[in-house]
Amino acid sequence: MVLRLRERADLWSLLMPPTIWALHFLFCYLVAAVTCARLGGVTLTKPNPGASFASLESFQPWVIGGTAVALALIAISAWQAWRHSGFGLEDPPHDAATPEDRQRFLGYATLLLSALSFVSVIFIALPAFLILDCR
């Protein structure tokens, strides 16, 4: 529904970039949480020192891969939005009661969302390069 290229902009294409962000976020969080939990993280049922030094190095390639895919998808979404918005030749506010302006508005808003999602994906990926074990 959301991850699809289309000729005409609609509400689904508007939601595409932030949805990719959300999937990337979930991916990073779940992979990291599961890695740390399964590699002998903190168990709640038995006494333990409370910290796990399990290394996260094996986890980094996953984040790199996931982030690359997410950024590529957002770039595709941005390119599509650029096309919908009229290749930057049409200035906002896109407020006329015409199908063209509706299309341009949706394209422009999607383009802005792509930029936000792009930056946010990078934000989310950063901790994986700064924190190297499960402490």
Binding site: W21, F25, A33, C36, F59, A109, I124, A128, C134, R135
Partner: peptide, 28 residues
């Protein structure tokens, strides 16, 4: 729209002191 989505990636910041791995805290 952006706030609507991002706001779902914040919940663990209420749980920073629960002993979750730092990497999880980092994402949130």
């Amino acid at each position: 729209v952006g706030t609507g989505f991002l706001s779902f990636g914040l919940w663990v910041h209420h749980m920073f002191t629960t002993g979750l791995p730092a990497i999880s805290l980092g994402f949130f």
